[in-house]
Simulated assay, not measured.
Amino acid sequence: MANTLVHTDFHFEGQKSVYHGKVRDVYNIDDDILVMVATDRISAFDVVLPKGIPCKGQVLNQIAAQFLDATADIVPNWKLATPDPMVTVGLKCEGFPVEMIIRGILTGSAWRAYKEGCRELCGVRLPEGMRENQRFAEPIITPTTKAASGHDENISKEEIIAQGLIGKDDYETVERYTRALYKRGSEIAASKGLILVDTKYEFGKRDGKVILMDEIHTPDSSRYFYADGYEEKLEKGEPQKQLSKEFVRQWLIEHDFMGKPGQQVPEMTDAYCESVAERYIELYEDITGKHFERNDQQGVDLAARIETNVKNYLKTR
């Protein structure tokens, strides 16, 4: 039986509130810092699936921490510390209600829309004659609203500014940061034989400064292709070998689930969940170049370990 963390109910000193998101639980400490726990929950089509994935939270947290450190010279970010393999502690910011999605390749939901005749995405005109998994001439930014529940909605730069979701000056800063982060992430991926296909970033403000928040460049927020064989597969119209959560979405689609009313999530066996864990670990090792040390051994109380580590960290502040 897999050892996973799918729910938390901590009570830390100075705790003001807790937010249970789709896959992360965020604890507000003194309205000053956040303790973000990356659980092993997994979501697809904006639905939290019924079983957790072993090591998923650890993989996401450790990849995000590494990339936050690797981009801190170009974009200020919220991270202060990682007191546990599944936890990041950082600055509390006033988040913008928008996710900044940047795409270097036409695939996923953008391709599905394109195939159905869509030639404008979030105010960005798309050229005719593109193929699935083809690179854009330049990466495009396709923001979405950040829904508290349900589906996020596509939105254009002009609509974001007109609706006051982000002020014009702040939006231009966020857009500049988005491109710089994607460029750095793509360079790191290329050095590991990967292509950073698309990804999303979240930003907020603290003390008047725009700050990068949340996780970045993880398989939950990003899609990677293997560079080796990319051109050949593109020419032949073959599926790309990829490292992302898209394989989970495809598995669900094959089992007639896309998050629509009345659809049933297919059975997630322990063997299937472990196979997903192996894909997450593969991405970790490929993108970081490091061996992954599993921290989900049977008999380990993941919640108790996290509680102890976080409490010890908070005592040092």
Rank of each mutant, 00 (worst) to 15 (best):
L5P: 02
Y177G: 01
D198M: 00
G262N: 09
S275A: 11
I101H: 12
D46T: 10
F45Q: 10
I306R: 03
G208W: 05
Y201V: 03
G193A: 05
K245Q: 03
E274S: 04
V26P: 01
K79Y: 05
R176I: 00
Q297A: 15
M213P: 01
A304Q: 09
P85Q: 02
L302G: 02
Y27Q: 10
I287R: 07
F67C: 09
V87H: 01
I195G: 08
K168N: 05
T288V: 09
T107K: 07
V37K: 04
H291G: 04
D69W: 00
E172F: 06
E307G: 06
I155F: 04
E232R: 01
L165W: 15
E94C: 00
T88D: 00
E246P: 02
I140V: 14
D40P: 09
L234E: 11
R305I: 01
F96S: 10
H217T: 04
T8Y: 13
A190Q: 15
E238C: 00
V276C: 09
L196K: 06
A137H: 05
N3W: 00
G164P: 02
P54I: 13
G208P: 03
Y171V: 04
V210N: 06
L302Q: 08
G95T: 11
K157P: 01
Q163P: 02
G229R: 07
G229T: 06
Q163S: 13
A38V: 02
Q134T: 05
R112T: 10
H291M: 03
I74A: 09
I306Y: 06
P54F: 12
A303L: 07
V89T: 05
I74M: 08
W111C: 01
L212F: 11
T82E: 15
F96A: 03
S222A: 15
L212V: 14
G104V: 06
R184P: 01
S244C: 15
L283W: 09
A113R: 11
D169I: 04
E153I: 05
N28Y: 02
H217Y: 00
R135V: 01
S156Y: 09
R305P: 00
L126S: 11
T199A: 04
M213C: 12
I53W: 10
V59T: 01
R24N: 10
K115F: 11
H291S: 06
D25H: 15
M213E: 14
R305S: 14
G95M: 14
G108S: 14
V23H: 10
R103C: 08
L243P: 08
T173Q: 14
T178N: 01
S156T: 11
F257A: 11
E246D: 13
D220T: 13
H151K: 06
T316Q: 14
S244P: 11
L126V: 15
I306C: 01
T145P: 03
Q263L: 04
I101C: 08
V35P: 10
